[in-house]
Structure formats: C-alpha cells, structure tokens
Amino acid sequence: MANNQVSREFLFRRMHSLLGVIPVTLFLFIHLFTNSSATLGESAFNERVEFLETLPFLPFIEFFFIFLPLLYHGVYGMYVAYTSGYNAGKYSWGRNVFFVLQRTTGVFTFIFVIWHLWTTRFSGNTPNFDMVTQVVDSPFGYWFMIIGTVAAVFHLANGLWGFFIHWGITVGPRAQRVSAYAMMGLFLVLSAVGVAALNAFYAAV
C-alpha cells in the first residue's frame, strides 16, 4: 500500500528537527561560549580563536558539522515557515503566539546568519578581536548583531521546546509547561551571554 511507505516529507521534517539540535544548537552553544571570552579581554578572545583555528580537520568539521546542517535547517525552515498558517491575530493564546515567533525569528535568523557570514567568515579579514570590533563599529552593525543574536537564541530555546515534543520526550501538559519555563530561562541566560560578549567588543571600539 502507498501509505505503508514512510513519506519523504516525514523524514525531511524529522531531519530538520534533529539537525536543529545536533549539531546546530550544539554549535551555537560553543560559538556563544567562545564569544564570551571577549569579556576577558582581547588577548583571551584571540587565544581562543587561535585554538579553534588550529583544530585538526577544520575544513571538514566546518563543512559537515556546521555549514551543511545549518544550510539544510535554514532552507527547509523557509519552506516550513511558508507552509505554516498564521492565525495568532484570531487566536492569541500564548503557544500560538510562540508558534508565530518561532517562524518569524527563524526567517530573521536565516537572513542574519547570511549577513553574519558575509561580514566575518567570508569577509576576507583575519578572524580575530579586531574583525568583530569593526563589525559592531556602526550603529547598524551593532544593533543587527544584538537583535540577530537574541532572535537566534529565542529560536534555539523555543525550538528545543518543540524538539522535546517532536521526539515524544515531554508528553503531558505539565511536562510541556515546565519545559516551556525552563527553555525561556535558557533564552534569557543565552541572550545575556550573547549580548555581554557583543558589548565587550563594542566597548573596545
């Protein structure tokens, strides 16, 4: 029978969910943690960057661990955002508002990440403390970095909440409520970490 076959759509959607956490979320944790060393000063940050630069198999890790999963999650995410309906105006329950926010922050983060790669990884500049201070030097650069970081971190935290449901981990309403509060706590903590790092770069402008 036709529907005895697992549909591609199902696999694509589950891949999108899984890759969003492993490795994209894990990568963002490492990324934000690395950035935090900027709060310890220019040399601390540059040392950390140098460590990452000298990792073995770096191009391989970058391509398969970061670039491909991020590209898949981003491009398929655009499709998800397109096929979703938006009725939070009509039904303004909290979860439905978060449903809309998850998709808007996703689209925003996708645009932000392209700009972010353009101004850092593919800018032709050496990746170091100075490169970032140049980016946050303009008001646009600073605010786009701040809003982009907060949007990405919200998408991560609320995305984890959804991940726990998509993989049948948080099943009951109480578990889902507790996980929602925990994830919003994570959002606040990661936002603070991200913004603190950006302000450390900004302070050095």
Binding site: Y91, W93, H166, G172, P173
Partner: peptide, 28 residues
C-alpha cells in the same frame, strides 16, 4: 509531522480531549 505545536487544538476542543498529549505520545 505537519504539526507545528501551536496547541490551538487543545484550547478549542469542546470535549477537553488532551490532543497535544496524544500528538506528543504519537510523535514518540
């Protein structure tokens, strides 16, 4: 897989059926 967890269903169900619990259980 088309479910996006907006959870409107459980809000409007006139019989108070735990639809979101069913969806999460079936996801697993």
């Amino acid at each position: 897989h088309e479910c996006g967890n907006s959870q409107n269903c459980v809000q409007v169900c006139p019989k108070g059926i735990p639809l979101t619990t069913s969806i999460a259980a079936m996801n697993g």
